[in-house]
Design a protein around this nucleic acid. Structure first.
Lengths: 155, 155
DNA sequence: GCTACTGCCTACAGCCACTGTAGGTTCAAT
DNA sequence: ATTGAACCTACAGTGGCTGTAGGCAGTAGC
């Protein structure tokens, strides 16, 4: 590929729709090291760097964590090997997304029920507070399924 | 309510299925201040404290952020006022959950398509990498809908 | 060559909701 | 009086950025 490195960090960031700091963060994480620096120390990116960044950005939009993207980039460099590992990463990620959807749907149903049952009276009679205060009023046993109740909030 | 404060932090944490540090964190956040301390400085929680913690835990399981829970607790203390504000918080949260579900479903569809189209050959021909490398191959324009591409990863 | 200005540099703090660690103190039982 | 578990405070780390402070590099006009 071309070894000319002409893009500044600001130009590349603008092109990718990312912040300049994000590119520096990716560099720190080992995802994208600029192919050159000026004598004064400023980063210069080549067209190959730009393609690599677009791959990274797209993978992030797909929700792949940075660690997975690092793996994907490493595997992508070994063109002759079978792509089973890449598929496995993608499949695992899809399954994780499905799991989150499942959890969120249960949550949505509970929230919906809670909201729709509230008659709109005074706070002392509020159905929302009642449900939040008493676990028995829930249909689902959220926070006991899966590994961490923590997941529900992130998801 | 009872003003006897007999539970240690470890006992209450165990009862609620939370870590001791989490209770101290909630205290720092102003959600749950123990109603007493021993002369030696150890926290002691009353039955009212325990009820408050169970409310907090349950609200967290519902995915309410700590700031919202602080509001809910404040509103819950004003029994005579109308519960419209509480309903609004719950409804807003439900809508946010719905939004995340929508985004995740689009994501899942893309991931699924990507995975199912891969023929299982070599890395150079991998459909997964191809899609990640070229935005044009996507059906959805993720990362351009909503405010931040950042959302997709959190969700 | 000088100045002004923008954009770049490093290093570090902050976000959220915890979790984990280090180093020391208190409590209850023996 | 001594042990040992549980407690205390204070701080660092998680992920994926974002924002700030204080200074240097590069370019355009004079």
């Amino acid at each position: 590929m071309s070894t000319t490195a002409e893009l500044t960090i600001g130009q590349l960031a603008g092109q990718a729709g990312l912040h300049v700091q994000t590119l520096r963060y990716y560099e720190g994480e080992g995802l994208l090291v600029p192919s050159a620096r000026t004598p004064g120390g400023q980063r210069r990116y080549s067209a190959a760097d730009a393609r690599r960044l677009h791959f990274i950005r797209h993978a992030r939009e797909f929700g792949f964590p940075v660690d997975r993207i690092r793996e994907l980039l490493a595997l992508a460099g070994e063109g002759e090997r079978p792509c089973a590992e890449i598929d496995a990463i993608a499949r695992r990620h899809r399954d994780e997304v499905r799991r989150r959807i499942r959890l969120l749907r249960e949550l949505e149903a509970e929230l919906d029920r809670m909201v729709s049952e509230c008659a709109g009276g005074r706070v002392t009679d509020c159905r929302v507070l009642e449900v939040l205060g008493d676990h028995e009023l829930c249909r689902a046993d959220h926070g006991h399924s899966e590994e961490g109740g923590h997941e529900a909030s992130r998801a």
